[in-house]
Nucleic acid binder design. Sequence first.
DNA 1: GATAAATATGTAAACGCTTACATTTATTTA
DNA 2: TAAATAAATGTAAGCGTTTACATATTTATC
Lengths: 344, 344
Amino acid sequence: MNIQDIAQKAGTSIATVSRALNNSGYVKAETKQRILKIVEENNFVPSAIARSLSRSETGNIGVIVPDIENPFFSKLIVALEERIQGTGYNLIFLTSDEQREKEQRLINMIEQQRVSGLIMAPVAEDNKISRRLLLQLEEKNIPVALVDRDLLDSNLDGVFMDNLAGAYAGVEALIKAGHQRIGIITGPITSKPGKERLDGYLKALQEYGLKLGRDYIIKGDFKIQSGYEGIKKLLALPTPPTAVFTSNNLMTLGCLNYLNEAKYQIGRQISLVGFDEIEVLKLIGYPLSIIDRDVSLQGNLVMDILLEKIRLLGKDKKSLARREVKRLTIPYQLILRGSEKLES
Amino acid sequence: MNIQDIAQKAGTSIATVSRALNNSGYVKAETKQRILKIVEENNFVPSAIARSLSRSETGNIGVIVPDIENPFFSKLIVALEERIQGTGYNLIFLTSDEQREKEQRLINMIEQQRVSGLIMAPVAEDNKISRRLLLQLEEKNIPVALVDRDLLDSNLDGVFMDNLAGAYAGVEALIKAGHQRIGIITGPITSKPGKERLDGYLKALQEYGLKLGRDYIIKGDFKIQSGYEGIKKLLALPTPPTAVFTSNNLMTLGCLNYLNEAKYQIGRQISLVGFDEIEVLKLIGYPLSIIDRDVSLQGNLVMDILLEKIRLLGKDKKSLARREVKRLTIPYQLILRGSEKLES
DNA sequence: GATAAATATGTAAACGCTTACATTTATTTA
DNA sequence: TAAATAAATGTAAGCGTTTACATATTTATC
C-alpha cells in the first residue's frame, strides 16, 4: 500500500494525496477529508524512507554515547529527548561501548542513514579517525555537536564541564579534611574528562605542596571493574593512601564494591570523593561526597546548539559557515556528605 | 556525491559501482579496486535511505522501552545490542516514558521508518490502540516481539518472566521471616508485571491464611516517587505493616529514600523485599532482598525470536504465518540478603 | 461580465540506490 | 575452432515520496 493506491481509491493524483498528508499547498477541504478517510480505513502509513529520499533529509538526529548503562548518560539521553519534543525531529541512540572502532563504525552508519545532525560523546580525545569522520560529516552539511567529551584539534561545537576545577575542588576537600596521602583512579587519559580530572588532582597536590609518588595514580577506564582493581592496588601499597579520588561514578562504585568486600569502612580506614552523582546512594542517604553538575542543563544546551546549527543550515549553507563555533563549559558543584573525612 | 559520480570518475556504470560496493554479482578485481579507491578518495558514503527504498527493507530494528533510566531496561538494551552484533542489523532505541500516547506515536513513527522488526515492552497491557498498531505491523510483514510486558489478547511472541511465582516467593520469604502484616506497592495494574506481582502477593497471603485490608495495597506506577509516597502512606496507617513488598526496583528505591528520610531502619522497624536487582546496592553490600532474573537471557531470547521471524519472512511470507507463536517465560530467583527479616 | 487573483488539482522529474535482464567479453570444452 | 559456459559490464525500471511547474476551476474586483 502506497500513496499511489490511496490516490487511486480517492480518485485524485498522488500529488494531492501528498499535500493532504503533509498539510502543504492547496487541497479542498472535502478532498482532504475523503483522502484522510481512505488513509484511515486502509491503515496507510507513509514511508519515511521515500520521503527522506525525496526531501533529501531525514529529520533524524543521531546520538552516540559511550555507555548506556552509566546513569550519567541515560540521564543525558532523557534530557535530549525532552528537549527535542515538538521539534519534529527524532532521536536515534547508539552506544559505542567505550570502543574506538565501534564508534567509528557507528559514525559511518549514521552517515549512511543521512541523519540531520549528530550529538556525540567521543570515546577518546585522540581518536584521529573519529575526528576525521566528524569533520567530514560537517563538510557534508551534517552538523555535529559534542557533549561531555572532546576531540582534540577538532574545534567542534560542544558542551563540556569544568573537569579540572571540579577535580581540584574534590581533592582540595580531601586535603582540607586532613589527608596527606591521596590516590586517584583516573579515566582513560585519552579522554578529555579523564585527562582534565587528573590534571585537577595534580594541581591540587601541587598547590598544597603535597608530593606524592606515581604509585598513587592508577589508570582506570571509567568502568566499574577498573575502580575495583584500582583501589585494591592503592590499598596494597607499602604506605597506602588514606583517601582516594575517583574520576567517575562507575569507578567510584567499583571502589565501594572492593571496600565492602575487603571490609574497609569509609570514614574509618579510608576516605573517598568521586566524580559524578550516584543517584541510588543519594536516595538511601549514603554519605558519599561527590563532584556533580547539571546533567539536564548539559543535555539541553547541546541539543539547542545542534538544533540551531540545523536551522541555520536550512536557511542557507553560508550562514552556518559564518557562525561562530560554540563551546560551552558548565560549572561543577562540590557536594560534601561526609565521605571525605575520617572520624577522629 | 552519489554512486553516479563515482561511476563517472571510474568510467563504469552505476550498476558496477553498486556491485563493487556490495560484493554482489561479478566485478573484475581491478575494476573493483579502482572503484573502491575513488570511493575512498572522495569519502563517499552510500545512502542507506536510497538503498532501503530500493531493497524495500531497512535492516533497522526498533526497540521501544518505557524507561531508559531504569537499569533493568538499560541492561536489557545492552543484551539486545550484544546479540545483534554481526547480524548486519542496526538497533534503534526509543523510549515511551511510561506514556501510552507516546508509545502509540512511537509505533507509528517506527512503522513510517519501515523497520525490519520491532521489540517492545508495552507501557500498559490494556492499551488497545498499541495492540491494534502492533497487529497491523505484523500484517504488514513487520515482525514484532514483546519483552517483559505483555499486551492483552494479542498473542504476540515474547519473553516474559514468572512474575506471579516471583512475587509469591518474595512475600513468602517475608511471611516465613515472621511477618503478619505485609504491605505491597504495586506497579500499574494495567501492566502484566504490575498485575501478576500483585496476584503473587495476594496468593501468598491467602495460602498462608493472612487476611489483610485493602489499605495494605498501594498503587504505584513503577517510578521512584510512587515508592516514596507509597511507603509513606503504609507507615502512616493505624496499624502499619511490618514489612513491605515493592513491585519494581525504582519503587524500592523510593521506599528506601523515604525510610532514610524518616529515619526508619531496615531490619529494625521495617522489612523489605523488592522486585528486580539494584546493582548499586548489591555492589556496596547493602542487604536488600530481592526477586531477580537473568536480564541478559531475556534480551538474548527475545532478540533470537525476532531474528528468527525476520529470517522466516525473508524466505517466504507463508512460512512465517505457519510458524507457531513463541511465548517464553524465564524463571525468577529469590535472593535473600537480610532485609526480609527483623532483628529479634 | 471581463479580468485578475486565489484556490485546487494534475503531470512528471527528481531523490540515490538495487537488480532483472541484456549484452559483451573471456574462458572452457569437445 | 566452433560452441558452450562463465565472467564482466551496461541499460533501465523500480522503490515511494515531494515539489516545481502547468493547468483548471473558483472567487473577488471593478
